[in-house]
Design a protein around this nucleic acid. Structure first.
Lengths: 149, 149
DNA sequence: CCTCGATGCTTGAGAACTTCAAGCAATAGC
DNA sequence: GCTATTGCTTGAAGTTCTCAAGCATCGAGG
């Protein structure tokens, strides 16, 4: 009994879609509880890493730049983000999380009980392993900081 | 340097969101190349496991049942799915993938090159490990078949 | 049987999301 | 300085999404 190599690529893809679907559902419910749509929540989530230009947000969220305009408009109207002109390129507007926006996204993350409970089923060592595997499979470079203009 | 237990829950959550973003972006682009929206693609993806009632789809996709009506309407209009009355409950409509729908979702899955390439960076043994960890964290029961009416 | 509450699906209204085509401002390469 | 490119916004058209209502059916009690 080898115990290895029982899983082919398709099975793993399938489980990935189920797992990420569960995560996404958890996130959507948590965002809704703060009166945010999934797209608005995802935008705040990205901005939690730091300010980003409209174009950068559109690239990360895999959507048209014109789409971000409306989403950021609505977030700004609620005081969750702020548009700041880039000091180095006057075409660019950097979107920044306000203190309130930061609070809201942290609340949302805290409400993702299903995901948290799932991860708690793993030991510390297993979480380390999961982290390393996901990092290798889904990030081009190791997740270190990268300079921006 | 122990090499263990360096990752806390928040870091793992963050990486999960990055992974989900990468997977979802890959999927969205692939679906768009077949002229499907992300929601339509996700619906086909769920149906790939087998027929499901409208209500079941809504639950899995974490949305209102009335939302599914429109999505399934448009998929049906394209001949990718079919509504069949449940033999046991006349309120229920089971949504079934047509041959063409099956073909399309398989094409989409095949076009997820970024995800596939990412998984290919892992060894067979690592994929087994990833599978086991995801299964434990994100599925209530081990992913075996479960009877349905 | 038959009434009553719960469930499954659909419809319609209103808001948000999404993309595309177009346009303006600013940058970058020549 | 010219020209092509890039970043952002606007407007139009279709899709998604939720909520409130409504209809049909099921299920449990009387």
């Amino acid at each position: 009994m080898t115990g290895t190599s029982g899983v082919d690529s398709d099975q793993l893809m399938e489980l990935l879609s189920v797992s990420l679907g569960a995560y996404y559902g958890d996130f959507t419910v948590a965002a809704a509880s703060e009166n945010l749509t999934a797209s608005q929540g995802k935008t705040l989530n990205v901005l939690r890493r730091g300010p980003a230009a409209m174009r950068t947000l559109a690239t990360i969220l895999t959507c048209d730049a014109s789409n971000m305009t409306g989403i950021v408009d609505r977030l700004e109207k609620r005081g969750l983000v702020r548009r700041e002109p880039s000091p180095t390129d006057r075409r660019v507007k950097n979107v920044v999380l306000t203190a309130e926006g930061e609070r809201v996204i942290d609340v949302i993350r805290g409400k993702m009980h299903a995901t948290r409970a799932g991860l708690d089923r793993l030991s510390g060592e297993e979480r380390d392993t999961l982290y390393a595997l996901l990092e290798r499979a889904f990030t081009s470079r190791p997740a270190t900081l990268r300079p921006s203009a």
